[in-house]
């Protein structure tokens, strides 16, 4: 078991290193950022001062080494624009991002799993068809467009909810709904197919033959089995959620890290972009590890193969 975990950890570390290096290379190889930061006529001598200050006068290889040394010292670079540490800029916006992402995630998982299970249990009924139609529609909908429609109706037309910004729970409703609709649609679809798969397994008939009530069959026999594939899918959706929230934060001017990223990308702010990507990748990788562990916990068959490996 420890061996299994160590291999997993090593692979994750490698993945993270690869992502960070690849992004570093792509960004640095893309040309001198100073030309997009300073206006056209700025004398080269001034630019050189900044090049030296930001360490981009050195070769890419040297920069790369320094970058990694700095990371291990806890220094994630300085924003070209704010002249503040990238770490501070991102971390101060994290609570907002976590608030939006966390709310969306919890609601979507609860809604998606229950709707998917209901659809599976009432397979072929009006409810099933209704839920699945909404699910397919929800992930065919461009999320930013859905956001705009919601703003158009609830904020501009009905004047019920604020169009943008953060602060109160009213601010949270529209962005969370926008993000959550797509996510719960995806989760509902997967839950439904996992559930249908489980419901036709012979052990469900055994549960019925034992005299377990309908409710008991679902909660104690079907759901724990359906949870196994569903958890994996939900884990993978975390990456999607982060990507989606970058867009939605922009649409709703939500003062989170995602919006900061879009702004930073627009002005080619190395340090902020790098740090954001490092953070997102670590989050996703850790989430996948947790899913793996949870998976082994949910499925007794997995732990054994893990030990044997």
């Amino acid at each position: 078991m420890t061996r299994y975990i160590i291999i997993k950890l090593a692979r994750s570390a490698f993945t993270l290193w690869f992502v960070v290096s690849a992004v570093f290379l792509v960004l640095r190889a893309s040309g001198d950022p100073l030309y997009s930061i300073f206006s056209l006529g700025t004398p080269e001598s001034t630019l050189d001062i900044y090049r030296e200050k930001w360490g981009i006068d050195k070769s890419i290889f040297e920069q790369y080494i320094i970058y990694f040394q700095d990371i291990f010292r806890g220094d994630f670079g300085t924003s070209f624009f704010d002249a503040r540490p990238a770490w501070d800029l991102i971390v101060e916006r994290l609570p907002n991002t976590l608030l939006l992402g966390g709310t969306t995630f919890v609601i979507s998982v609860v809604a998606g799993v229950s709707l998917g299970a209901i659809a599976a249990l009432m397979r072929g009924s009006k409810w099933d068809r209704g839920i699945m139609t909404v699910a397919v529609a929800s992930f065919s909908m461009p999320s930013y467009f859905l956001g705009l429609l919601l703003i158009l109706f609830f904020s501009l037309e009905m004047r019920w909810l604020p169009t943008a910004g953060a602060g109160t729970w009213q601010h949270l409703i529209l962005p969370a709904t926008t993000l959550g609709l797509t996510l719960s649609g995806t989760i509902a679809r997967f839950t439904r197919s996992a559930m249908l798969e489980v419901l036709r397994q012979p052990y469900m008939r055994t549960a019925r033959a034992k005299g377990a009530s309908k409710w008991r069959q679902i909660v104690w026999h079907a759901l724990p089995n359906a949870a196994i594939p569903t958890v994996t899918v939900i884990g993978f959706q975390l990456g999607w959620l982060i990507g989606g929230s970058v867009v939605i934060e922009t649409v709703f001017s939500w003062p989170g890290a995602g919006r900061l990223f879009i702004v930073a990308v627009g002005v080619r702010d190395f340090a902020v972009v790098q740090m954001f990507i490092l953070m997102v990748a670590s989050t996703v990788i850790i989430a996948n590890l947790l899913v793996d562990i949870l998976y082994g916990y949910l499925d007794p068959r997995i732990t054994i193969t893990g030990i044997k490996k």
Binding site: T15, A22, V26, G243, R268
Partner: peptide, 24 residues
Amino acid sequence: MMLVDVQVSLPFIIFALAVLAFVG
């Protein structure tokens, strides 16, 4: 398989935005 892991670990839209902004 490792490349697949790498791809999965970074939401694609974030990668795409970064590349488009920096590479042009």
